[in-house]
Computed example of a mutant assay.
Amino acid sequence: MTDTDEIIGGADTHADTIHVAVISAGGQPVADREFPTTETGYHSAIEFLTRHGVPRVVGVEGTSSYGAGFTRALASKGIPVLEVHRPDRAARRCRGKTDTLDAYAAARAALCGHGVSEPKDERIGVVRALLSARRSAVKARTASINQIKALLVSAPEVVRSRFRQHRAKQLIDALIETRSNTHGDPMAAGIVTAARTLAERVVFLDDQVEFLTDELDQLTAVLCPTLRSAYGVGPDTAAQLLVTAGENPQRLRGEGSFAALCGAAPVPASSGKTVRHRLSRGGDRAANNALHRIALCRMARHAPTRAYAARQSQAGRSKPEILRLLKRAIAREIYRLLTRAVTPPDYADLRRTRQERNITLTAAARHLGVWPGTLSRLERGQSRDDELANTYRAWLAAA
């Protein structure tokens, strides 16, 4: 093989090592070798590939995890990279598993184009990190509140009677202000100390959740402002949909495949004379949850969605069936926002006009019959509602 021959690379990635394999354009094994996951190791791996020919493409397992560093190194050299999905388990059981076999399998997958996709945009790694940190903080906060309630269930009556009527927020505030030395009973004092410590943890986690939400708010607004302008799409749901889609549109083959990826593609569930569909149980369940939250938000507050749900209900459809239809329609809308250059609405004039007329946000929201937060997000371009914007603009002009 000469230096001008095209070759296909494959990489099986791990925390400390990567195993790189080379095959010819016809699929014949050429060579393989292991390298450390360091800058020097990546440089040596690329030299190993180019020594055997011109890399047409390199298939890498885990481009967003163990293979992220190697993917960046390949991209800096202008070498095309494809993300290789997990091998079929049945096929793996038949041929066995080693780093060498997996590296050659990745190269063959990149050659035939089966079980591969474009690597996710590197900026999505930042969104994923922030989203993961926020969700773990929310989970820890919920666990701490549950621990407090469990402690109070078995606490002495003097403690239980003091905090029995408090709801979660009031309970946390009351515990923060409580001192254990006010109780003569050592058992009661110990319970109060433990509960107050957990309450302080809840306050700390509340601050973390708020900070991480603000970070996601700013980042998602920069990465995909059109997505954030959609009704019911907040920082958390936008972040999850961006992580699922991977930001780069070329990963998505069509709105049907995106719906299937989100577990929102209809699945036939007919029998006899009954013709119906149900929600898919496959796909990314976190993305499906994001679509579900958007659908619930729209069913509660979005007038067109409420009217649509009412029509479907009158037609005899159940709430789960209506949610299935809504999630499929929302998936179609999200796909369009992710893959097309849609210009977000310009609502900048609304706030400027309101301030020129010395009208408070609360007064405007009361007149229009919406929450001040809804109007604030509309003014900042963080939500899209053309009907409300036109009504608001007309009212400001007449004010």
Rank of each mutant, 00 (worst) to 15 (best):
A221Y: 09
R201M: 15
L241Y: 05
V209C: 06
Q208I: 06
A239N: 01
L227Q: 05
D284F: 11
A221L: 10
A199M: 05
V192D: 02
D214H: 15
V275D: 06
E177M: 07
L261C: 04
A189L: 07
Q250D: 03
S180G: 07
E200Y: 05
T193W: 10
P186H: 01
G234I: 03
P186N: 08
A199T: 13
F258A: 09
L227N: 10
T226M: 11
V192H: 07
G263S: 15
L279V: 03
T220H: 07
G283R: 01
D236H: 13
V233K: 06
V209Q: 10
F204C: 04
T193A: 14
D217R: 05
T244I: 11
N248H: 11
A239E: 01
V243C: 10
L223N: 13
S271Y: 13
M187A: 09
E247K: 08
D207R: 10
L241H: 12
C262N: 06
E200F: 09
P268E: 08
E255Y: 11
P235V: 00
Q240Y: 08
D206W: 05
E247D: 06
A259M: 12
V192W: 06
R281N: 15
A260S: 14
I191R: 03
D185R: 12
G254S: 14
A290C: 00
V192P: 05
L227S: 12
E200P: 02
N289E: 07
V233M: 12
G282S: 13
G232V: 03
Q218W: 13
R179G: 00
A188N: 03
T274G: 08
L279F: 07
Q208D: 02
G190L: 05
A194L: 11
A195P: 05
